[in-house]
């Protein structure tokens, strides 16, 4: 891992909502191709941290560098940076007034990355990859939760991002649909995508993560390989949390 390029560099990141300090002081480096899973109790700042990485939440202090762009710098064109960072949301957030294929084609065509024809063929290719090619002309309301999330992943991939952020991608799904979404994410990880995943799926973390980061109260409590964190946690708070979820 040492000789790989640092894809994400976070230094002394702080984020407050009014008086409430959600991220107190976070620093972390994530390498290209690394899969990092963020674990922690709710309210620990995992989602906020993820949302700071593409500036859906503006950092209150600190520095974030992604793929050599200093995104906390006010002069950085955040729209350009976001093209490079795919994000998958807990509630899918597909555009309900557009078909599955239109959902995927929207950004590449509007941002002039591709012609309509290129976007269409790329879209179909991505739908095939997530096993949704038969639903290209369907509307989101006609899909199950698992199908929606797979389309949302394809939509995020359409811009050819170097980083993918997953914000509790399976938390809103019925249990029988969790597997199909995790499968797509596993394949993505195997293809070498840099991924940061907020999840409560310990099994997925154990199997896919290169590193697990345990957060609580706006800090990183401890981090390490799945073996270290899940099987041999050192900190009391980590042990306490794992006892509750396992």
């Amino acid at each position: 891992m040492q000789d790989r390029k640092v894809m994400i560099h976070v230094e002394n990141l702080k984020k407050s909502f009014g008086k409430l300090e959600v991220l107190k002081d976070m620093s972390i480096d994530i390498s290209e191709g690394e899969v990092v899973v963020l674990l922690g109790p709710s309210g620990s700042g995992k989602s906020t941290f993820l949302r700071c990485l593409n500036q859906l939440e503006q950092a209150s202090a600190g520095t974030i560098v992604i793929d050599d762009s200093v995104i906390t710098d006010k002069n950085t064109d955040i729209n350009k940076v976001r093209e490079n960072i795919g994000m998958v949301f807990q509630h899918f957030n597909l555009f309900p007034h557009k078909t599955v294929l239109e959902n995927i084609m929207l950004a590449p065509v509007e941002l002039k990355k591709m012609t309509k024809e290129e976007a269409r063929s790329k879209g179909m290719q991505l739908l095939q990859r997530v096993g949704m090619e038969t639903k290209a002309e369907a509307y989101p309301s006609q899909l199950s939760g698992g199908q929606k999330q797979r389309v949302a992943i394809a939509r995020a991939l359409a811009m050819n991002p170097n980083v993918m952020l997953f914000d509790e991608p399976t938390s809103a799904l019925d249990p029988e649909m969790v597997g199909e979404v995790l499968q797509v994410m596993k394949e993505l990880a195997a293809d070498g995508m840099t991924m940061i995943v907020v999840t409560h799926e310990i099994g997925f973390a154990r199997e896919v993560a290169d590193r697990i980061v345990f957060m609580d109260g706006g800090y990183i409590v401890e981090q390490g390989t799945p073996e270290e964190i899940i099987s041999h946690p050192k900190e009391a708070r980590t042990i306490d949390f794992l006892n509750k979820v396992l």
Binding site: L56, N79, K80, R82, N84, I85, N93, A152, A156, M159
Partner: peptide, 12 residues
Amino acid sequence: GQMEASRSLGLS
């Protein structure tokens, strides 16, 4: 979430 999803794709 609609605005957020759209912004996350790089749309202004």
